[in-house]
Design a protein around this nucleic acid. Structure first.
Lengths: 189, 189
DNA sequence: TTTAATTGATAACATTTGTTATCGGTTTTT
DNA sequence: AAAAACCGATAACAAATGTTATCAATTAAA
C-alpha cells in the first residue's frame, strides 16, 4: 500500500514473525489519516477506539484533573504510538484526551483490527503480550521518575530522552508533563 | 497438593481455561514458602527470579532513590502478588526490593514455571498478555493518582482501597507510599 | 496590515512540603 | 526487668512549589 506502512511493519517484526498473507491482512485494515494542529482526536471520557501511530508530527496525551488543571501525560513523537490503552482495551470512558500539537500524519489502528490480530495472526497473542509488556515498561519508567526524582532531574532526563522535540513544545505543556507549573519550570532553568 | 493452591488456581481460571493436566503441571512447579517479618526476599539491583503470591501476611515493595530516601512503591496484601515484574521479564537488575512486614506465607512462582506457561498451557500466551495488561492497569492508576491528586486525596483513596490493612502498616511506610514525609502525613491528619 | 492570542520570563507573595529536633508511649531485644 | 529501638505526634524553621500579575516578544488570526 503506502510506503509509510513499512515502518509499522518493521515494528511488528521486532516482536513476532509475520508472513506475506498476514501482513496483507494487517495493512488492509490500516488507514492513513491527517490531523490538523490543535485538533483533538480523543476526548476525555469517551471510549478510545483507535491507536494512532505517528508517521510525522506530534501528539499530546493529557487530562483535566478534579481541580480543573490540565496535566500532560505523554508526547508521541514520530514512529511512536498514542492511545488511551486502558480505555481501548476495556472499552471504558477514557481518562485522557489526545490532541495534535502540529499538523500530524498518523496510521490509525482500529478496535476491529486489534481484535482480528488475535485470530488472524499465528503469533497474535504473543504480539499482544509483548506490546502490553512494553507499555508496562514505559509507564513503569514514569512512575520511577515521579517517585524518585526531583522536577529538575526529571527535566534533565527528558532533555536526554527527547533531545530535539523539546524545542517544538510550548513550555507549559512540558511543565505539566513534569508535574509542575510553567512558572516554576522557568525558575529552574 | 495444598489447599492454599486453590486460590491461585481460581485466579488463573479468571483469565483462561485450564484443564486437569495443565493445572497438574502448574501446581507441581509451585512452592509454598514462609518469610519472616523484616526478611528481604528481593534485594535492589539483583535480578528478580520469582513472583510471590501472598497467602497470608504482607509484603512491601520499595526502593532507595539517588538521595538515599526509601520510597515504598506497593503493598501486597493477601491474595495478591509481589514482584519486580520488569526485572523478572527482562532478567535485568531490579529497581525494587521486597520485604515482609509481617510473618508471611507465599506461593513462589519461579522463572522456570513462568517460561513453561507459554509452552505447556494452551492459552499460555493469552494468560501472559492478560496479566501484563492487568499490571499495566494497576500502575496506570498509580500514575493518575500521582499526577492528578494531592497527597491528602491520595491518602483518602488509599483508605478506601486498603480499609483494614492501613492499621497494620507503620506510618512512615504509608507516607513514602504517598510520596510525602511521615511528618507531613501526621500534619494532614 | 492590524489586532488578538500565545509564549516565556520575572517579581512578589502565599501555600505546601521537607528538615531537624524533641518527647512520650510502645514494642522489641537483651 | 532493664535497655534499646521504634513509633507517632508536634514545634520551629527552611526550602520547594504554587498563584497572581505584569511585560515584552512572537505567532496566529482577522
Amino acid at each position: 500500500m503506502d510506503y509509510n506502512m513499512e515502518s509499522i511493519r518493521e515494528l511488528i517484526l521486532n516482536y513476532i514473525e509475520l508472513d506475506e498473507a498476514e501482513w496483507e491482512h494487517c495493512s488492509q485494515m490500516l488507514k492513513i489519516d491527517t490531523i490538523n494542529k490543535k485538533e483533538i482526536v480523543l476526548f476525555q471520557n469517551t471510549v478510545c477506539k483507535n491507536i494512532y501511530f505517528v508517521v510525522k508530527g506530534l501528539l499530546r496525551t493529557y487530562f483535566i484533573d478534579q481541580r480543573g488543571n490540565e496535566k500532560t501525560f505523554h508526547f508521541s513523537t514520530e514512529n511512536t504510538f498514542a492511545t488511551d490503552y486502558e480505555s481501548f482495551l476495556k472499552r471504558t470512558p477514557s481518562h485522557y484526551a489526545i490532541q495534535a500539537l502540529e499538523d500530524t500524519i498518523v496510521i490509525t489502528i482500529s478496535l476491529e483490527m486489534h481484535e482480528s490480530i488475535y485470530t488472524k495472526l499465528r503469533y497474535g497473542e504473543r504480539l499482544g503480550r509483548l506490546i502490553a509488556e512494553d507499555y508496562f515498561f514505559m509507564i513503569n519508567d514514569k512512575i520511577k521518575a515521579l517517585y524518585g526524582q526531583t522536577p529538575l532531574e526529571r527535566y534533565n532526563t527528558m532533555n536526554k530522552k527527547f533531545p530535539k522535540i523539546l524545542q517544538r513544545i510550548p513550555q507549559h505543556y512540558i511543565a505539566s508533563y513534569l508535574n509542575i507549573t510553567s512558572v516554576h519550570l522557568s525558575r529552574l532553568k
